[in-house]
Every structure is written in C-alpha cells, then in structure tokens.
Nucleic acid binder design. Structure first.
Lengths: 239, 239
DNA sequence: GCAAAAGTGTTCACCGTACACCCATGC
DNA sequence: GCATGGGTGTACGGTGAACACTTTTGC
C-alpha cells in the first residue's frame, strides 16, 4: 500500500466532500426507526453515526450515485427502487474536527422488514433505533436527524411518500397507524378512510390480511400510474 | 504571483466546491426578476450565469458564509438581513466541463429597488432579467433556476416569505399583486384581504400611499414577532 | 362468547368562494 | 367629472370534524 502518498494537488485547499444517509424504516410494532452505524475509525470511534462516506470521483458519477453506493457498502441495502431524496447540505470548518467538511445528506424511506436481515446480519455495528430514543451521535448528526424528521413530517402530508415505508400490499389501518406515528397525532378512522377513498389512487385488492385474531382487513396497493395522471391534472395529495 | 504552484495535496481527488446564488427581486412593474452576471472567465465566456464562486476555506466559515461573500463580491449586495436559504446541491462529473464540481445553491429574496443602483452601476455584466424571459445560461443553470422558481412558488403559499420582496411598508394591493405574479393566477381582492386580516400578523399603520392618482391605500408592516408567537401556538400561514 | 380491529353514514360548523357597490385621489 | 385602484359585507356550497353501531375472526 502506498500509505500516505498525496498525489492529488490543487492551487487552493479543498473541502472534504461526503454523503450521509438517513435511512428511515417502519417496524412491525409501528415505531419509526433510523438506521445507524457504529464508527470504527478513530474519529468518534465507538459512537453511533449516520451511514456515510466520502464521494469518490472515480467511482461516483453524481452525488446521488455516491449516496447509493455508500448505502450499499455500509448497510447492505441495495437502493435500487428505494425512495432517496436530498435533504440538505452541511458544510463548515468546524463540524468535523479534522478539517473543513461538506456533507450532502440524503434520506431514504424503506420497508424495514425487507431489509431487516441484511442490516442485522452485517454486524453489531449496524442497528435500527426508534427515532425518539436515539443514542448520542457523532459530529452534528443529531441536528441532521432532527431536520430529516421534520422534513418527513412536513412532506408526508402533501406527498404520497408514506407508502415507501409499507409493504406493497397494505391495509388502510396500517396506513393510518403510519400517519399517526409520523405526525404524532390521532386520526379519525372513518374520516381518514373516506379521504383516501375519495382520492382514488389506491387499488383495492380482493385479498385480505391473514393470521390476525380479528376481522381481517382488505389489502390495498398504491396506484402510482393513476397518481401521476391525477397530479398532471392539478390534483394535490393531502392528508 | 506564484501562478500555478499547486500546494494543497490530498490522497484522493476532490471535487471543486462552489456556491451559486439565485437572487430574486420584484420590480416596480410587478415583474419577478432574477439577477445574472455575464461570465468573463474563459469557460462559457460571455454567457449569462448565476452569481457564484468557489468556497474559500480560509475565508469562509460555512457554506452560507461563502454564499454571502460571493453575493457581495459579484453583485455588490450586502446580504446582512437578506433572506437567504439553501435550495439544493448539484454535484456530478459532467455538469462543469472542466472537472467534477459540486455547487451548493442558495436563493435570496430582496427588495429590488433597494439594490437596483449597485447592480446596475457595478457594470454591464450584472443585470436583472424578467424570469420568464431569461437568456440561455451557462452550465446547468437553467435547470437550477427552474428549481428555484418552483421552490418559491411552493413556499410562498405556506410561509410568509413574500414580504422579503417588498419594501418594509407596503399596501395590501402590492402584496396581492406579488402573489398573483409569483403564483401566476388571479386572486379575489376581498377574500385575499379578509384572509390576511384574519391572520393578524400585520401592523396596520396610520400612513398612506402618496402620489397615486386614486384613493391612497393604507400601509402595512409584517409583524414578525407576532408571527413567531402564533407559529409556536400551531398557527399555519397559508394563502 | 369475548376481545380486537374492520367497516360504514349522517349531521353540523366553518371556511373558501363568488360577487357589486361606494370612496378618495390626480388629472 | 372621470378614471383608477381602495375598501367593505353577504349568501352559498363544500369540506373537514365529530360521532356509534355492526361485522368478522382467533382464542
């Protein structure tokens, strides 16, 4: 290994450029969770932090591509088809004790159960945490998480992103509980259901829940095609 | 001058890091305008582009500080007290023909008349353009402008940012015209006024418009204190 | 048969919308 | 006095909010 040969030189100093990911998932107990990794590098060693890494100019064609690569490498999540959006960019001389660092933050919404195995088998250093009981985090990651949660809370009301957290086929009860969890408020089931039905962006399946000790609920799917059509015509999703 | 001595070396290649600013202003004729500069550097020389520049690690403590410095240097605008928010970060290997470049974009809303002089006296290479008649722009700046306009259109409805574009004291008519311009739709004056009055976030002054050839309108001020209070109590601004 | 969640309809209050007439000023 | 935008109230319809009882299943 050529250890510390520094081959890439510039006329002016350059900020380090990283991407970090907020990975949110909804657990079976309806708690919203965040995926964290435990740091093994010496800076903040042992502390929990967001999965992230430096942008690699030779591998990454874009910031988003870097985020997807990092996500896969650090958590085992293949982000193909996963909802991933840019949140914000943090950059200052002090947020990383080593040097001036810029981090572009992305957030992902995934169906936690699909990815549960990979994350937990990977190592003890990747773990899901309930969002209102997070450990102390490295760098300014606590602030970043807070911003991410606020973004989701705001966005979920007027864009149909909640489905990303659920399995493809879900019950309206699950959807309601999801909204109640994220928004942290109770919703009236009858009004909620009526509102959703009126939107006409769900496919009502002829399948039902199984193995529940109560009346099984009908399963639904989000109809992305229809939503896109309606949006073009001026329809606005809103809960 | 030490021309091209390249003193700053790193183990891995680093992206160039720039900040660019979308500066929006409302002109007296109620058109929404954007401030552009004409490039003098050889890349895209002569083309119009967003004011921007590279982050200077020795001068800039943060990305936002960099944006404010650049704004002042390129357009003469002292951004103290100016509304400035991060829009998005663009980064890829291809958006700048020279090299892998990351640009953190900020957008500012200013009262155009206050800054008109500086921008126009500065040089022929800084100019206001009506947003729906922009010249062809350098780099991916057209895409960036589009995103910025969309952001404003969305944000203006549910956050009181419109006032940033008006003088401190304004008439409700000016405010209405502003909204009509940004949202590109007609609003009913009576309903609009009633809605605003009900919000109770305006100070009704005992001053009036002067020099108009019709009944002079009352002047108002946005009451930021009151807005903050109300927001804490769960009030949501909405037009 | 009991617990637990699913499913469904009606009433009421409030808010957004549509709409028309008089007022103060400059020229 | 006329043109121009400023200022105000009312009636209607639609939408969100509140609310209770019956249904299906597992145990």
């Amino acid at each position: 290994m050529s250890t510390s040969t520094k081959e890439y030189c510039y006329k002016y100093p350059r900020s380090a450029l990283a991407v970090d990911c907020l990975v949110f998932g909804l657990d079976e107990d309806n708690s919203l969770k965040l995926l964290l990794i435990q740091r093994s590098q010496k800076t903040f060693k042992g502390k929990w932090a967001l999965p992230g890494g430096f942008v690699q100019l030779d591998k990454d064609a874009s910031l988003e591509a870097a985020a997807r690569r990092v996500l896969r490498k650090e958590t085992g999540i293949d982000s193909k088809g996963v909802f991933l959006e840019q949140l914000y960019t943090f950059g200052s001389e002090k947020r990383d004790p080593r040097e001036w660092t810029t981090s572009v933050i992305y957030y992902a919404l995934i169906n936690l159960n699909e990815y549960k195995l990979k994350a937990s088998t990977d190592a003890s250093d990747v773990q899901w945490f309930v969002i209102d009981n997070l450990p102390s985090l490295a760098f300014d990651h606590t602030e970043i998480v807070e911003m991410g949660i606020n973004r989701i809370r705001g966005k979920v009301r007027y864009q149909p992103i909640g489905f990303e957290l659920l399995p493809k086929k879900f019950t309206l009860g699950q959807l309601q509980t999801l909204y109640e969890t994220i928004l942290n408020e109770k919703l009236d089931r009858r009004n909620f259901f009526r509102k959703l039905r009126k939107m006409d962006i769900f496919i009502e399946l002829e399948e039902f829940q199984e193995g529940v000790s109560h009346r099984p609920a009908k399963l639904y799917q989000f109809d992305e095609q229809k939503y896109k059509q309606l949006k073009k015509k001026g329809f606005n999703f809103e809960i």
